[in-house]
């Protein structure tokens, strides 16, 4: 039975490749029809990959990272691609150790960083914050791609007074607690985070301890917070 069927299918596929779908669609037996269709799709895919493997000229007409010389490092490539897609969202062009971004388009860029096949940063390894002085707070993200085994670091600086950054918690679930910790310590608001509470300190704590201008509160529920046992020194 199977040899007959195979013969039939190859015949049908040959017809299908020339554009004649009638014979396949008119098969009564459902199983046979789906088998024939699958074989046709496979044949089409094989033909396509042969085509693309030979000449690569058409692709290079569109601007893409393929034009870049192979000597550029990953950060330069990402900066180039971000400039193409999200113009104006780079804070500066320095790519030596990290990529400095502005906060406004961060959510879109983050979504793209994960979905773009040539980057596919599927793992957020660390998200942390730092007070860099000059009334500026900075959130830092370390990304790794399991597929390509490459790393990059993204930094986003925001002024202390309106420290708001779009949350990436819905893109990488690990960012949930990371962002809560950054919020706890530095008071950076992550807009769009679904559960932005303090994670380490008690909920009713006052102030952001890792900011440079932090002053310890005097009492907490009637307990004196700063050191009070004088005479020990």
């Amino acid at each position: 039975m199977s040899t007959d069927q195979d013969k039939l299918i190859t015949e049908l596929v040959e017809k299908g490749l020339t554009g004649d779908m009638e014979p396949i669609n008119s098969i009564e037996d459902r199983v046979l029809r789906s088998k024939a269709k699958a074989a046709l799709a496979k044949a089409k895919r094989a033909a396509k990959s042969q085509e693309t493997a030979e000449p690569k000229k058409k692709k290079s007409e569109e601007k893409s990272s393929d034009d870049l010389p192979s000597s550029v490092n990953l950060n330069e490539k990402i900066v180039y691609m971000i400039n193409e897609k999200f113009s104006g969202s780079l804070a500066n062009e320095n790519t030596e150790t990290h990529i400095q971004l502005k906060s406004d388009q961060w959510f879109e860029i983050a979504t793209w960083l994960k979905s773009e096949p040539s980057l596919s940063f599927d793992s957020l390894q660390c998200q942390t914050g730092i007070d860099v002085g000059d009334n500026t707070l900075e959130a830092r993200y370390n990304f790794h791609s399991m597929k390509h085994n490459h790393y990059t670091e993204i930094r986003i600086a925001v002024p202390r007074k309106e420290a708001t950054i779009p949350s990436v918690e819905q893109i990488w679930r690990i960012a949930d607690w990371f962002e809560r910790e950054t919020y706890d310590m530095l008071g950076i608001e992550f807009s769009g985070h679904r559960d932005l509470r303090r994670i380490l300190l008690p909920d009713d704590w006052e102030g952001w301890p890792l900011r440079k201008d932090y002053l310890v509160q005097e009492t907490y529920h009637g307990i004196v917070v700063p050191k009070m046992k004088e005479g020990w020194e």
Binding site: P209, Y214, V216, K227, K229, W232
Partner: peptide, 20 residues
Amino acid sequence: TSGGPYWQHGYHVLKGVDIV
């Protein structure tokens, strides 16, 4: 007993449990 290594600059540590 006294807050240990956090006894001077640890903003989050009770400086000895005998306070409470």
